[in-house]
Amino acid sequence: MTILARPPEETTAKKEQRRRGVTERQRPLWLLTPGGVLMVLVILIPLAVALWISLIDLDQYTLRRWVEAPFIGLDNFVESFSSGLLNSIWISVSFAVLSTIATVPIGIAAALVTQNKYRGRGLVRAVFLIPYVLPSFVVATVWRTMLQPDGVVNAWLSKVGIEGGLWLTGPRSYWALILVEIWAAWPFIYLMALAALQSVDNEVHEASAVDGAPWWPKLRRVILPYLRGPVLLACLLATLNHINNFTLPFVLFGAPAPEDVNVMPMIVYVTSFQSLRFGLSAAMAVLSLVLIAIPLFVYLRAVRLDVHEEGARR
């Protein structure tokens, strides 16, 4: 603030120059230091350590003197590929994408349902948030109980004449995981969509009314375009959340997991904390990070996260 208060005797030209200097060159960047230091401590240093660990042969035998653990270059990365990492990545990505695709219509529909005022809307909104506020652990435990071979789900299915079978092992476990993830994750899309709906100007609604637009064209051509940015952002965040979800598969299926749900966080966990191959698991984690970062980067470039109009102009 003190910098901006100029002595009156300065010429206009000088002033111009000085102002540009202030805004461009002498911006008080040092104010970013606390955040920067935190970033370094919390993100960059651990990331660097993870990179280093991925290059050394760190296991229970070398853990104690981990600084002296033998450097083995890219061996861990090579071994990752023969340890089923590619399969896990495929499972993780497909599971995450399918879950996101399924939650979007549910989330938007729920947001539309609670957009207009009516009696009990507050209650409906609160109920919609229940899956979101429940801890993942609780969700997984409850679903695990329901999906038992002799559990509630199979009991219901048999009432309508469907043979339930096993949900927590074998190929069906994959669909069980998606089902539970959808159940737990759709309110996130709902929240983002609702927030976007709330930001639609009243004039837009009025203009549509004046033009006599029926509800469906109004929804499709007027309202939904407003949702595009926030919902795409929500999709991105949701997909990343699905990929990183460890609690759900771990509690639902336990470790070792059935092959069909051996998602990335599970394989990294088992390699690290059950096989105690810290080097190998760090390599797996680094590879997963890189592999996720590529589409993420492409995607971010494509959408540019145009949530606000200003964002769109830049």
Binding site: Y61, G165, L166, G170, P256, P258, Q274
Partner: peptide, 23 residues
């Protein structure tokens, strides 16, 4: 042996992956 944790895991995995067949 320090490898026992892994061996135990491998033995359990045979059962885990066999569950669909048992079902």
């Amino acid at each position: 042996t320090g490898a026992w944790g892994d061996i135990q895991l491998a033995l359990t995995n045979v059962a885990v992956q066999s569950l669909p067949d048992l079902g």
